[in-house]
Design a protein around this nucleic acid. Structure first.
Lengths: 193, 193
DNA sequence: CACCTAAGATATGGATTCGTATCTTACGGC
DNA sequence: GCCGTAAGATACGAATCCATATCTTAGGTG
């Protein structure tokens, strides 16, 4: 009677369910049975694909990671571009950052990894978008052609991530603007005096 | 034969054991039996004081929080003072920040709180130390008398916390210096040009 | 249309842990 | 030196969850 999913479609449904479960109940209460129930199937289907709980957690994380991609904004100013990126992250990644930073603690312990190991692939992807963005700012004459250090370039995003990790919630927009206007831009723009 | 601890001494030993257990095995594998074993006693002693697991976790966190206090450095320069504080945090608080930021995820979920709620009492305590420190920098003529925003004042510590949360490890000293020299000081010192 | 693979349901053994109950024994107060 | 309180040990029922095994059935393949 019920339609029976197969192959890739089923696998995606399982991984999505696992991720949602991770986000909602956390790693400590992450059970195979709950994932199966959420996906509308049974534990056997999970064990057929992943050997145990941690294997599934790892697969779900990688799966979600692959879906994330930011496209490069072009608002005409460095301020607008960076703020657009931050707003995008703030609107779509709070759950991911929360899970990555907090709920996976048990996973890190068992695998000897840390949140940075999950973050790095994302960051290198974003770094390319940032390259374009800073190049355009140089062309417009907004900033000097000397390349910025990686720390300064990632500064607004590090601060945003920090805020999210402290509050487990989206960051108010005026805080985003504060970060850009009182911390980031003063460091990269030539002093206006 | 064995000496039997009582009252406050016993309670402190129990809370310390609970905290160590939290730091070493994480919240997910935090069991009453393990805490009791580490403290050299039995579960009944724990249940006599705290109604359940989360109650003990909460008490242990508050207990450790109360013990933390930074004394205000006076090295003769703002750079030295801030770096001294950062090195102190880096040397003594990595475990606490890791537990606070990551291992307590389950606790936050149940209590509806977030790491920021645990951090705030610490920060307000530190803010007073920072007041003294910035006042001295003004007196020395290092920085202008206009008060800095809270965001800029806490910037090096937020970045330090962020680094620790990403790596679960102490931050290399040259990274601390990089944060201070390429991000913090350029924002608070008058431009040297 | 017959066959085979895998989906999905269900049962289960084993391990872990929670929280309570019961008992003995050390220690402090009087 | 007696006595009550609480420390500490031990046992236990109930619940949870992991991981596997077994079985039925849907759906794709030929």
């Amino acid at each position: 009677m019920p339609e029976r999913r197969r192959g890739a479609a089923l696998e995606k449904a399982l991984l999505d369910a696992a991720w949602e479960e991770l986000a909602e109940t956390g790693y400590a209460r992450f059970t195979m049975e709950a994932v199966a129930r959420r996906a509308g199937t049974s534990p056997s289907v999970l064990y057929r694909r992943w050997s145990d709980r941690d294997d599934l957690v790892r697969a779900a994380t990688v799966h979600v990671l692959r879906e994330y991609r930011l496209d490069t904004p072009d608002t005409g100013s460095l301020r607008g571009d960076v703020l657009t990126l931050m707003r995008e992250i703030n609107a779509t990644r709070v759950q991911f950052i929360t899970v990555m930073g907090a709920h996976l603690a048990g996973y890190y312990r068992e695998t000897g990894t840390s949140p940075g190991d999950l973050r790095d692939p994302l960051v290198t992807g974003r770094a390319q978008a940032l390259d374009v963005l800073f190049d355009r700012a140089v062309e417009r004459g907004e900033i000097k052609p000397e390349p910025l250090t990686e720390r300064v370039r990632s500064l607004p995003f590090d601060l945003l991530r920090h805020e999210i990790l402290m509050t487990f919630a989206p960051v108010p927009d005026d805080v985003l603007e504060e970060i850009v206007d009182t911390v980031f831009l003063p460091l990269v723009l030539p002093p206006a005096r």
